[in-house]
């Protein structure tokens, strides 16, 4: 419960930064997806159920504040989370380059997923979506990936400070 609550609060804070500060002109095209970094971090370090609920909530938050129908990002973030869970034991995670690649490919994968869903459920022209993908999502993926090692480091520090200790204290033992 602490994990879910904490990732929710952190998600709201990151969303506020993403929808105000990062929408300013210099960042516009390269706006890194901070919530995506958090979802990927959860995918790597959280248990499947509480992490899944957190990822769904973070997706729902994005849905709430963006100009699309409810459910799009709730679904994609959940898929990304379980995708990350699936590969986490097959992946060497200590290297910064791997963190970069990991974030880059997952952000791109989410972009393709969004295109697929939008194409199924709406009448938006695929050509426009692919242009959009190349113009915005590709640079965004790159900058999200570039920021991800720092993001993972900060989230792990916060996790140790606020979540792990409390969980350990409440359960009487250590838990990751």
């Amino acid at each position: 419960m602490i994990r879910i609550l904490f990732s929710g609060i952190l998600g709201i804070f990151l969303l506020a930064i993403q929808s105000t500060f990062l929408t300013l002109e210099p960042f516009q095209r390269v706006k890194p997806d901070l919530l995506m970094i958090l979802v990927l971090y959860l995918g790597f370090f959280s248990p499947p159920i509480s992490g899944g609920i957190s990822a769904f909530f973070l997706g729902f938050l994005t849905d709430l504040f963006s100009g699309n129908s409810y459910g799009l990002f709730s679904l994609t973030r959940l898929i990304i989370f379980y995708g990350a869970q699936f590969i986490r034991n097959r992946f060497y995670f200590e290297d910064q380059l791997y963190k970069f690649l990991y974030a880059f490919f997952f952000t791109l994968f989410e972009g393709l997923l969004v295109i697929l869903i939008l194409n199924i459920f709406s009448i938006v022209n695929m050509e426009i979506l692919f242009k959009f993908f190349l113009k915005f999502i590709l640079p965004q993926s790159f900058f999200t990936a570039l920021l991800s090692p720092l993001g993972f480091y900060i989230f792990s520090r916060i996790n140790i400070l606020f979540v792990t200790r409390r969980v350990a204290n409440s359960s009487g033992g250590f838990s990751q």
């Binding site: 969303l15 506020a16 993403q18 929808s19 105000t20 929408t23 706006k31 997806d33 919530l35 994005t62 504040f65 963006s66 100009g67 699309n68 990002f73 969004v114 959009f132 915005f136 999502i137 965004q140």
Partner: peptide, 14 residues
């Protein structure tokens, strides 16, 4: 206007 779309996919304001 207090915020803009958090994603790059859509164009909206709050």
């Amino acid at each position: 206007v207090i915020a803009r779309d958090p994603t790059s996919w859509f164009r909206s304001i709050t």
